[in-house]
């Protein structure tokens, strides 16, 4: 069972109370080092149902490592991770796969399967996870997912024919097609132009509103954080240094965080 250690709910930038108070994911005292380099010293967080939680921090502060630990891609040195009732660090491979089906992960580099078309990229998880091989049903689901991200025209293109923003959106569509309860976005606007970044930010908000997913958005992009966050955790030196709404964090006097907002 997930037991929230703290219930410091916040109101979003729009001033609306977040969805219900159920914690869908929690991380406690997470530690991870690579050789002599300590990346995560003591990270704690709770993710509530239906909220967008932004993890803000400089490059190299372990933000991506944090969410990779959450889905079992990286094994932490210490701590505990609970996702939708699963104690992630104690799962066997089958249980881990079962948990992962409920968690979508959007990679920084999109990670589209480059030998497959966009259609095949989206069909792949449906065939392998849900055993759907009926072409009509596959087609319907793929088209719906691509419509959600506004890319139905790219259905038969290869990933190499897509722009960076289009790849990100296809990557998000590929995770959404399994109707995840939690979405993890790793630097969703990294390397994109400002206008495409706004489109991706809008899409992240749309996903939360339409699918009622809880999301963790890893970013160092302040405008992305402002646009998408219901709540922000600032990760500094391997600790979650501050937590609050974007406007609260913005008022910080912390010398390590101020440069983010004064830039």
């Amino acid at each position: 069972m997930i037991t929230p250690l703290q219930n410091n709910r916040h109101t979003s930038a729009a001033g609306t109370q977040q969805a219900d108070d159920a914690v869908v994911a929690s991380v406690r005292n997470l530690q991870k080092s690579f050789g002599d380099v300590i990346v995560l010293r003591d990270v704690n967080l709770d993710l509530y149902a239906g909220e967008n939680l932004v993890i803000l921090g400089r490059s190299g502060t372990g933000k991506s490592v944090l969410i990779k630990c959450m889905v079992g891609l990286i094994k932490p040195d210490a701590g505990s991770i609970n996702i939708l009732g699963y104690d992630v660090l104690k799962l066997n491979q089958d249980e881990l796969n079962e948990m992962r089906l409920q968690v979508g992960f959007s990679f920084q580099g999109s990670a589209l399967y480059d030998s497959m078309t966009v259609r095949q990229n989206l069909e792949f998880p449906l065939q392998r996870n849900l055993g759907i091989f009926d072409q009509t049903e596959l087609n319907e689901r793929v088209v719906n997912a691509l419509e959600d991200v506004g890319l139905e025209s790219a259905i038969d293109k290869m990933p190499s024919e897509l722009s960076g923003g289009m790849k990100k959106r296809v990557g998000i569509a590929r995770t959404l097609i399994l109707n995840p309860k939690i979405m993890l976005y790793d630097e969703p606007t990294a390397g994109l132009d400002p206008i495409t970044s706004i489109e991706i930010n809008d899409l992240i908000v749309k996903v939360r509103d339409k699918y009622k997913t809880a999301s963790i958005i890893i970013t160092h992009d302040i405008s992305s954080a402002r646009h998408t966050a219901d709540r922000v955790i600032a990760l500094v030196g391997g600790y979650n240094k501050q937590e609050g709404t974007f406007d609260e964090i913005k008022q910080t006097t912390d010398p390590e965080l101020q440069p983010f907002f004064n830039y």
């Binding site: 889905v71 891609l73 089906l101 979508g104 990670a111 399967y113 792949f124 590929r174 995770t175």
Partner: peptide
């Protein structure tokens, strides 16, 4: 190439074995 471009990780996290 699939490993370094995180395609294998993407398969892992979507539970596709």
């Amino acid at each position: 190439s699939m490993r370094v471009s995180e395609q294998i990780d993407a398969m892992e996290v979507s539970g596709t074995r």
